[in-house]
């Protein structure tokens, strides 16, 4: 073996990149994302909120909502518990968080544990309606709303992004990495009738 540099391998590399005709649903993988779950330590919620606000310039949302600040975002995924993401930060993100807020929160690095798909398109709601038992209508599920639910027996976390430049809805879905291909297959099959395209960078 001459190649000693092992790079990350997308779980979607071997999956069919399109289905049907058209581009009703366009998918892409969110790569290089730093992902960490933070949980307030016992009776330290107020102190954690203050610290996060001071050091990360982010107000932790109280319910299933997502707050963004630059490359950073925090999604409420349970009482006193958030899923934080940072663009292109990888595993260093959780390590940095542990240094800055670890006194008031348990920080778990999930960058390699979760896979995240970004879905957008004119028919994305119709495709997702077949997968998740949550009302994703634009009035019911607004930008930065967060839901943890189940899609084909897989626990998924999803949130709504700002609409695309073409005014189409956009969402991000994450599952445990070992479910990545199952989720992809579910989305692929659900979106096939609307035209499904997976874009690689």
């Amino acid at each position: 073996m001459v190649d000693s540099a092992y790079g990350p391998l997308s779980p979607f590399a071997a999956m069919p990149a399109s289905a049907g005709t058209g581009e009703g649903v366009v998918a892409g993988e969110r790569e290089g994302l730093g992902i960490a779950r933070i949980t307030a330590r016992n009776r330290q919620l107020a102190a954690l909120e203050q610290l996060v606000h001071k050091r990360l310039h982010l107000a932790l949302p109280a319910g299933p909502r997502r707050m963004r600040s630059g490359d950073l975002a925090a999604a409420g995924v349970g009482p006193e518990c958030w899923l934080m993401t940072c663009e292109s930060a990888g595993n260093a993100f959780a390590a940095g968080l542990r240094d800055s807020i670890g006194g008031h929160a348990a920080v778990v690095d999930l960058s390699d544990a979760y896979v995240m798909l970004r879905l957008a398109g004119a028919r994305v709601r119709e495709a997702l309606a077949k997968l998740v038992p949550v009302d994703l209508h634009e009035r019911s599920f607004q930008v930065d709303d967060v839901a943890q639910t189940v899609a084909e027996h897989m626990a998924v976390t999803l949130w709504r992004l700002e609409d695309t430049g073409r005014g189409e809805a956009a969402f991000e879905l994450s599952v445990g990495r070992s479910f990545a291909q199952s989720l992809y297959r579910a989305v692929h099959d659900s979106a096939a009738e609307f035209g499904f395209v997976f874009e690689t960078r």
Binding site: P133, T149, V150
Partner: peptide, 12 residues
């Protein structure tokens, strides 16, 4: 659910 809102009992 006090946190998530109304959900089907199959999630529980």
């Amino acid at each position: 659910c006090p946190f998530c809102g109304e959900r089907d009992h199959s999630e529980f």
